[in-house]
Computed example of a mutant assay.
Amino acid sequence: MQNTATLGTLNDQVIATDFLIAAKNGIKSYAMAITEASTPEVRDTLKQHLNDAIQLHEQISEYMVNKGYYHPSNVQEQLRIDMQAAQMALQAGNLQ
């Protein structure tokens, strides 16, 4: 049986990862919207939102790196972390 601390860490990691993915998708969406905007005012507004989304992504990434959940410059370590999280998720699913 998984201990509570392990499942709590997994939950924090899963939430942070989902948040990071959402921030990345937001960045892509704002960038695409800027190319489709018809007026300078709309483009300026979208650029500000894009900058805010980039800052949010940076904050989430920094949090995840500090917690040891994310290793953007070490692919092997990131793969190990991802595999461990996937294994924990599978085990947690089997407990239900």
Rank of each mutant, 00 (worst) to 15 (best):
N3F: 10
N3V: 09
N3Y: 12
T4M: 10
T4E: 13
T4V: 10
A5Q: 15
A5R: 14
A5E: 13
T6G: 01
L7H: 00
L7G: 03
G8Q: 15
G8I: 04
L10K: 04
N11S: 09
D12I: 11
V14A: 04
V14D: 09
I15F: 12
I15L: 09
I15R: 12
A16I: 10
D18N: 15
F19N: 11
F19V: 11
L20H: 02
L20F: 08
I21W: 06
I21P: 01
A22C: 11
A22H: 12
A23V: 01
K24F: 09
N25V: 03
N25P: 00
N25A: 10
N25R: 13
K28P: 01
S29I: 05
Y30P: 04
Y30E: 07
Y30K: 03
A31I: 05
A31H: 07
A31W: 00
M32P: 01
M32D: 09
I34F: 01
I34G: 05
I34E: 06
T35Y: 07
E36K: 14
E36R: 13
S38P: 00
S38E: 13
P40K: 07
P40E: 14
V42W: 05
T45C: 03
L46N: 01
L46R: 01
H49G: 14
D52W: 08
A53S: 09
I54A: 09
I54G: 02
I54M: 06
Q55F: 06
L56E: 02
H57I: 04
H57Y: 11
E58R: 12
Q59M: 10
Q59V: 10
Q59I: 14
Q59L: 11
I60Q: 01
S61A: 14
S61G: 08
E62C: 03
Y63D: 02
M64I: 08
N66F: 06
N66T: 12
K67W: 08
K67N: 12
K67E: 15
G68P: 00
G68D: 00
Y69I: 00
S73D: 15
S73I: 11
S73G: 06
N74C: 00
N74A: 04
V75L: 03
E77I: 02
Q78I: 08
Q78M: 04
L79P: 04
L79Y: 05
R80P: 05
I81S: 02
I81Q: 03
I81H: 06
I81L: 02
D82M: 05
D82P: 02
M83Q: 15
Q84P: 02
A85V: 00
A86C: 07
A86Q: 07
A86I: 07
Q87G: 12
Q87D: 11
Q91M: 14
Q91H: 11
A92V: 05
G93E: 08
N94S: 07
N94P: 04
Q96K: 08
Q96G: 11
Q96N: 08
Q96F: 10
